[in-house]
Design a protein around this nucleic acid. Structure first.
Lengths: 197, 197, 197, 197
DNA sequence: GATGAATGAGACTTCATTCAT
DNA sequence: AATGAATGAAGTCTCATTCAT
């Protein structure tokens, strides 16, 4: 994961790209997508020119940040897809999505864009994400841990919605937990409703 | 409801204000809060100066749009709070929130701001919203239609999240319905889970 | 002086005109000539339309304020021009110009414009001002109270400069006094230099 | 004096900054401080963005112009403060202030602001100016060339006033000279009144 | 005559993007 | 490759002026 994805870059250039991506994720998460590219350059300690050398437009940078975030989700999904308890795996994944650091709505944005933007780099990611989610979901449904009447589309919408809901409760952990519990309970089949709280 | 809220304005001025608010709601819903004031002026068929005469800053315009939206929700909540079937009233309200025309995420934004911005005009609205939601929620919980372990904070977060979730499924009515059903089921107490397809 | 200058106005209209002029003088003096016409309308308690009915442009309003101020100076000069002690009369006048309430630089502006703008209304005022100043100056020079080598042009420039100088010292009465004394001493013939402070 | 004051700028950037400052001085002098930033950009042959890169607000630009002008006065004062004839030095300085090119009232504005605005950049300049003026003034007073009853405050006010006075006489050199002579005579002790004119 | 809502040119300022160094 | 100065379109907001009420 820490090896150059884009080939043919000098070591320092690739380091800059990685740093920019990380910094951009932070800045966009905390100040929203309208944060200026200049601010990101400053935060990354590089010149503005360097940002545009690596990401030809601001949108490309935003997209790269989304892809990065989604990539991590996909990795999580893959690792959990072979866990022994399919039900547990599914719910652990759902929670882990929302545990991502920073603003949850940033994740919501990333997920939201995955289903909408069909840009070059997004296309492959979308397929990978669908595959990963599908594996988790179907396995969990097969063992009766998740209701049968939903598919990937619903799962994605619920992830986005849950991220936004949790984001709105930001600050109050109790509220966050109870809110998420409602959604997770909604995902369980009739007879397996959680008894917590 | 169709009478001047802001007193002392001429009839024509108030018509312009109402028109602007409606147009702004449309434009912000479809192009996001970063839509330009100029665009709204053009869409409303007035000069840019007229927008700023009625709403001294862009933020004031956004706030007015939010307040308008919330006001409608509050009205809905009030009317339903005296319905005979408290459980039905609650779920009808929840669905009606998401039925509001335009982009659902616009509603999410309005709701989200209600809990954050404590601006002058917002303050009163927030109280009214809380009161309206509380009446609906408590009554529904009392008759056992809604789980007891959530309060207004969770309800608000879920409304925001549901709006976003439904927004993400935008276009596919089936997905919208099933996604919403999951969240509504999550709100029901253990034994009253919906059995719909 | 308190009778309508512009004929054919209703009593209330003329009152509005007078009030506007007074208010405009205040506002321009305290906030500068870039104060908005709207502000003046508000301060005068009339609608913006009324301002433009009486003064077709902002510049016309500014000009009217200048003329008003100059008119008062001219009146002062006339009254003093028949005083028994010509020297005393001259210096009393010079000081009285700077005693006008409000910002001194406002007076400087008015005086400055008198020599520059040759607009309709200004033309006559300029002649009156010159006549008044000339009477005072020549009489004072004749009795040896003021040096002989200056004329109206120099006197006007010195009035403008003194107004600005005093304005700069604003707040510190001692500095104001000593500064003015320097200029007045400069106006006296060699042997009559003041011996104050 | 012609070396970069603000460090860390490329040669070309500094050239632009210097050019902008010079052009801004001209434009503000001839059209007043309300001249538009855009006009200055055009006159300097740069894009509007360049103006704001060097001076983040219009006020910052105005301030920089003031500081520049004051800096020149301070330099003059310093050079003259070690001249053999202290009296001559003082009067040469006073005249040289008014000889600065462009509109004299621009100088008046700069001097006027020196005593009012205590902005960051102004603070140091004000001290330097005071120090420079004080050296000239005290030395001239010590040799009996200037009356003893004035201090820096009065000197500054007189410089401002003289600039304005001369500005008002603009165009007529004779009037300018005689007006200035009056003020300079006022500065001399009783027995040393000029005999010119 | 008085009012104040409407207008739109123009001001200041930001920011994505380009390009000379 | 990296830098950051330059650019100018576009955005928010102000204000003198007009005109329907």
């Amino acid at each position: 994961m820490e090896t150059p994805v884009v080939k043919g870059l000098r070591a320092d250039a690739w380091r800059n790209r990685a740093r920019l991506l990380a910094v951009a994720e932070d800045v966009f998460a905390s100040r929203g997508p309208s944060a200026s590219t200049e601010d990101i350059a400053v935060a990354a300690g590089v010149g503005i020119g360097t940002v545009f050398r690596h990401f030809p437009t601001k949108e490309a940078l935003l997209e790269a940040v989304f892809v990065e975030r989604l990539q991590r989700l996909i990795d999580d999904a893959r690792q959990l897809s072979s866990a022994p308890d399919a039900g547990q795996a599914f719910f652990i994944f759902f929670r882990s999505v929302l545990d991502q650091a920073h603003s949850k709505s940033a994740i919501a944005d990333a997920l939201a864009h995955a289903g909408i933007d069909l840009k070059d780099s997004m296309a492959g990611v979308k397929e990978d994400l669908n595959a990963g989610l599908n594996a988790l979901l179907v396995r969990a449904q097969r063992v009766g841990a998740v209701r049968d009447d939903i598919g990937i589309a619903e799962l994605l919408a619920l992830l986005v919605g849950a991220a936004r809901a949790v984001d709105h409760a930001a600050g109050n952990t109790d509220v966050e937990d109870r809110t998420l519990e409602v959604i997770l309970d909604g995902l369980r089949p009739h007879s397996r409703r959680s008894t917590r709280g």
